[in-house]
Design a protein around this nucleic acid. Sequence first.
DNA 1: ACAAAAGTGTTGTCTTTACACCCATGG
DNA 2: CCATGGGTGTAAAGACAACACTTTTGT
Lengths: 258, 258
Amino acid sequence: MNTEADVNDFIQNGYQEYLTHLSIDPVILGYHQQQLKILLLKWKGYKDWGLPGGFIKQREPLSKAAHRILKEKTSLSNLFLQQFYVFGDSPYRVQERSPQEFRDKFNLQVEDDNWLLKRTIAIGYFALVDYSKVRVQTDFFTEDYQWWDVAAVPKLLFDHNEAIDKALLTLRLQIYHQPIGYNLLPEKFTLPEIHSLYESILGKELDQRNFAKKLIALGLIQKLEERRSIGAHRSPYLYQFVKEKYEQALQEGIVHTY
Amino acid sequence: MNTEADVNDFIQNGYQEYLTHLSIDPVILGYHQQQLKILLLKWKGYKDWGLPGGFIKQREPLSKAAHRILKEKTSLSNLFLQQFYVFGDSPYRVQERSPQEFRDKFNLQVEDDNWLLKRTIAIGYFALVDYSKVRVQTDFFTEDYQWWDVAAVPKLLFDHNEAIDKALLTLRLQIYHQPIGYNLLPEKFTLPEIHSLYESILGKELDQRNFAKKLIALGLIQKLEERRSIGAHRSPYLYQFVKEKYEQALQEGIVHTY
DNA sequence: ACAAAAGTGTTGTCTTTACACCCATGG
DNA sequence: CCATGGGTGTAAAGACAACACTTTTGT
């Protein structure tokens, strides 16, 4: 959606292709340099940053729509992608927008009843992605993108800060029941990497010995013979997830504390 | 909504009052005679039973809508009510219905583009209610209602079985992080009652001594001097929730195993 | 040789689990 | 007096939490 004709068609006729009143707002989390990062977009006409977003096609299954939108934004498929909340309470999610607002932001004229002015209820999804593989696409509505440390997210558009808080809370709760990391780390990773990932997610320090013991005792990860030479100092061993155990734990759940 | 005029107006003009494409489907759980029960409705024109349902008003906050719908169906307010999943994948949730189908079910003629024929994405909420206080309202579309043991739910309409499974799964996970029972039990209850409630929810036996010890150690419930005389046999003591501890546990979460 | 990061075990404490008998009451 | 359901404690096992020193390697 980058030519002017495409954009106009989307604005005028998008209601035929997409469901009105509904959007999918993905919280895209990656991990890089010991920090949990979130992908935010700079929306045209707004000074604050915001989450990506997308609409559901008329006959598209909801989960397909979520995957499609993620792919459009990040070029990644087969992500870990999960619903975490539906947002329909904040003032922004209740009121319609005005054509003036639309003109101010995008310099485009629309009718009062244009579908893009309607209230949208947002289905929040969070995605865990391999930071290094993401190739972000921008479009007419989104001018720029940037990865932010989740600990330093600025004030965002609409209720997006709330959405991120909720996504992180869900992730923190979930980490006690399900293994997490498969989609956030490269295939082979070191103990310090996964250790620090878990510390980032939980926002607290975890004893390195107990942490490694636990993951290995659960059989979730296994040590490889390879090591990584990062430069100075002792080279860390590489580990990988034991896929079967990981899948099993996703299904059946685990209870533990780290 | 019981007069013919009301129903006709709802069908023809409801799209002005309500958001299209979206419904709220509540899984209403109660507890009675040692069984976890679910409230199901008999929808006009369908042979299978189904969940209650409702629509969101144009400018109504989502959570208000959920509470309103619950109140309309059960006459209860201030319920424990929580989103658990959005359903938008099953074939029924993707395809539009036909006017024929509508005529067959309700004996009413509608146009091809009637709002009630459109695909609906359902926001699943579960409600925990005090069984004894529910007064069910039926209407034009729902002819009858019945409480079912969750262990013996029949084949239901659309994807409603899936919704119930997901609701129960969510509840089971949640019970490890949050106290549950405040809204399912009367104000004063006995240890055997809450014990059996937890067994119903978790679907497994819990040691009675350990269970009581745990709840008391957490400070969630307290013993009263009163006893209940149920008839034959030793009279059980009554307990009640310690509201402050309960609220605190809801907020902060707990980790335990029962 | 020094600085920086990785690797590795043990112990005490707390939590969890398993388990069975007596008591009270109504019929 | 008997049948039914309610109440109560202890001990063994397992899980968790706390803790520090040695090894490796590049500069």
